[in-house]
Each structure stands twice: as C-alpha cells, then as structure tokens.
Write a protein that binds this DNA or RNA. Structure first.
Lengths: 250, 250
DNA sequence: TTTCTATTGTTTCAAAATGAATCAATAGAA
DNA sequence: TTCTATTGATTCATTTTGAAACAATAGAAA
C-alpha cells in the first residue's frame, strides 16, 4: 500500500470516529424493477475486488431511517424511498476477511452490527453514480449476481425473502409503477418479484377484490393487439391496506 | 444520590465500558403463556420507578443470539429459548428521559441502538428472579400493563403484532406446549395469542390439514366430560413447515 | 379494406377452503 | 343410571381458488 493511500485511510478513519456512532452500520438492499426485470444495486469500494451492498454508518445524533435514506442518496442519488427494516447482522467476525489487509486500528475495521433495510424502486429512473468511496455503483441483474463481500450475499437473500413475504401483507411495489399502469404491467411486477408465473384471470380477480385499484377510462394504445385498460391506485384504500395488511388467515 | 450509590454507578460504568460493545443493546419481549393467560416478563431496575423489558448489552466478541439468550437467562433463569428478531429501535434520544438524573459520562447513558427480540415460553415453568441490577422481575398480565420506560411500550406492542403475524407462517408457540397436548389446549393458545375466539370445528380441521400433528393413542383423563385426545408434533414436518411457512398466498 | 392474430377483459365451472352448525361419543357429576 | 358439558368429526352452504374458456379489440398482415 502506498504512503498516500495509507495516509488517506488514517485521515478517513479519524474523520469517521469523530462523526459516526461506533459499532453500528447500515446496509441497504435496493431492488430495482423495470419492464419485467429485477435488479439490485451493488457497489464496489475502492481497493475492493468484490461487490457489496451499499452501506454506511450512523451519525452520532442521526435517526436510523434518516441515515439509511442519506446513505442511499449518497450512493445512488435516489430521493425519498420507502425503506423496510428486515433484519440485523452482527456475527463477531463478519468483516474480518474483508479487512484482513488493513491495519487493526482502522475505525472501519472494528466490529459492526449492521441494521439491514430493503427498498424497491424503478431502476430506469436512476443511474447510479459512484460516491466518494466507491469505484462502481451499478444495477446488477438478480440472475447474474457476483459473489458478494462479507455476509452481503446472505443479507441480499434474506431481503428477497422478506420482500416476497411482504407482498402478502402490503401493496408494496405499487409505489414503483407509474401513476397509471395496466393490469399486465402489475402482474409482471408480481411475477418478477416472486420469480413465478401467475394465472392471469385469477390475478385480475384477486387484485380487483382488494379494492386498491381505480379503473380509469383510458387504455394504453400503441402496442400491438388489444389495448389494456389503465388503472391508478385508490390512494385512500391503499394507505389503509398498508396499515392493516391484505390478509389475516386466522 | 448517596456517595455509595454514586461510586457503584461509576464502577459499573467502567466495567461495562470494558466488557461491552458501545452503542448496541438488546431488548427481549418474553411472552408467557399458560392455561389461557398471556403474560409478559417485565423488570424494574434498581432506582427506577417504571417497569421495562429485560435488556442488556452485547459483549465485545459475543454473537447477537448468544447475547439475547444470556440476557434472558440472567434475568429469568430460562434455558434455551427460541428468539425471534423483529425490529431495531434507535431514536437518538430514546433514553434521555430515563437517564436525566444520571451523570452524562455514565456508560449506560450513551446512545444505544436496541436490537429487539421476542420469545414465547410457558410462564408456569419459570419463576422470574431479579438479577444483579433489577429489584423486580415479574410476569405481568398483558391486560394489566403498567406504563413502561423509554420506548419499551412501543417495542412490546410491535412484538405482539409480529408474533401474531408469525402465527400465519410458522407453527410458533407450539414449542411452549408440553410434549403431549390436546386440541382444545392448542386452540386456547391461538385464541389467547390472537385475543380472538376461533371456531372449534374449523380450527380442528385446519390444524389436521397442516399435518404437523400426530394423534396419540391416549386421552387426557381427569377433567370432567369427554376426555380429549392427546397429540404431539410431527417433528419432521414441523421443521419443514418452520422453514417453508404455512401458507403462501401468491 | 378486410382478415388475421395475439393479447386483454371477463366469465364459467370444477375443486378446494371456509364458516357455521350439527350429531354422536363419552368422562365424570348428579 | 341418568345427565351434562365437552370433544371428535362431519355436513352443508358459501366463498375462494385453479384452470380454462369466450368475447372484444388494436394493430399487423393480406
């Protein structure tokens, strides 16, 4: 490691110690959907070979959600995003492998308990731009995942499981469709997130029964074949459903 | 505050700083069920007026789940308990009110991000005993909750919501019944956790369909009226169901 | 302009699940 | 021996689901 790199590390380390709460980090799994393709936002830190989830630290007086938003914004330029906390990762030596070539007194090398969030956005509206510490920031297709640093592979896997489970409880994902959308578009979203084909008629019927959609007097012309109807959310019912959930079972 | 109390505080503070990771704490919401009554394990710290959830800190090289287990054991004497992480609480000044009369350099007064777990056990098998820092540790009926310290009221409320939701996914709670149990006992458990009456015939039918129960060739004699059949879990199917969940919906 | 075709909107019908009620069996109490 | 409350299990109507069908239609092809 050159002297210059070494010095930058020490400077950053001191700055971090000043600014951030020790022991706590935040990792965000940002899923991106567009036209039937599901991607995830990954970054590569400078000097790192492996990809990882965008993450960061918590400022000493900062709220957790605010921090998660800020970290995402720094990495991606994304604005207000609906973030869901789903798990916490704190195995004692989870970062040991990653930092093995770094000095032990590096602030970043201490043990961190990482609070994990996931989010879902439209990747076509966002071109990731690498930030100060990252050499790459890209949307990676979920079917072409590289090996990830530390326990980020596990975090990503868990996030996807949680996202799929949440689909049963919340009209999640609707917030990444445009204001007006068609039933096939909505179905495609569900199929992509679940990685599973759904029956068209049954999907239509079930969605309509939830009552969260308002059918507009417009169709999406332009494509070949029959023009599909356009829908928007019934914002009122949508909010209510977000709180109460789609189904109960017991 | 007397000199002696003050000195103890400082000693503990130094000991804590030595032993534990900064910024991270753990809170456990332990629900206790027995004979149709649902309670929660609450403690009162020495010098504290309000009740709170049993919580503690994470040792510098300790695993999160191990720490949660240890904290629970210290407070309750409980052995191996199935703990579920459900949320994290980290509002910047969440403990400010509680510690307002304490010196600012007290280790415990720093900002903590609390990792929250819930557990479910049979309260009749466990008599809580106050530990070193607690003057009381008791099972409190869920319908007679006192006001709790800090954000513990919120944590408890969230834990119950999560527990109820998990009932749809996991045969949770079964682990707090004795090895042999009756269908009415199982139903009572569900009714208590959900705070809702369930139809007897339908509950029976649904439970049987899951296939997680094995009917034994025994009945529970002794009570008045017809003796109910005894069941045990089909351990194999139980494990599988824990992984895959009871229902999918999509 | 007419015909064709793939896609969409909606319905149908059988199968499965659910809700509510019923009936037979039975352990202990009267 | 009879009575009674509870349990095990089933019935039946209703609702939901799964799978398929049919009608409508925008643009492509002829």
């Amino acid at each position: 490691m050159t002297y210059k790199v070494q010095q930058k590390l020490i400077d950053d380390s001191n700055k971090n110690k000043e600014l951030y709460l020790p022991s706590v980090s935040i990792d965000c799994t940002v899923f991106g959907f567009s036209e039937g393709i599901l991607k995830v936002l990954l970054i590569r830190l400078k000097q790192a070979k492996q990809w990882g989830l965008p993450g960061g630290y918590l400022k000493k007086e900062e709220d957790l959600h605010t921090a998660a938003q800020r970290i995402l914004r720094d990495r991606t330029g994304a604005g207000e995003i609906f973030l869901n906390h789903f798990n916490t990762y704190g195995a004692p030596y989870r970062s040991q492998g990653f930092f093995k070539d770094y000095p032990d007194d590096l602030w970043n090398k201490q043990r961190f308990i990482s609070i994990a969030y996931y989010a879902l956005i439209d990747f076509s509206t966002l071109t990731p731009t690498p930030g100060e510490y990252t050499k790459s920031a890209e949307w990676i297709d979920l079917h072409e995942l590289p090996e990830l640093m530390m326990d980020h592979g596990q975090i990503l896997e868990d996030a996807l499981i949680q996202l799929r489970r949440d689909l049963n409880y919340k009209p999640i994902g609707l917030n990444l469709l445009p204001p007006k959308f068609t039933m096939p578009e909505l179905q495609k979203l569900y199929e992509t997130l679940l990685d599973k084909k759904l029956n068209r008629g049954n999907f239509y019927r079930k969605m309509m029964r939830y009552g969260i959609l308002t059918k507009l007097n417009e169709t999406r012309k332009g494509g070949a074949h029959k023009a599909p109807d356009l829908y928007s959310f019934n914002q009122e019912v949508y909010e209510k459903t977000l709180k109460e959930g789609l189904q109960e079972s017991w």
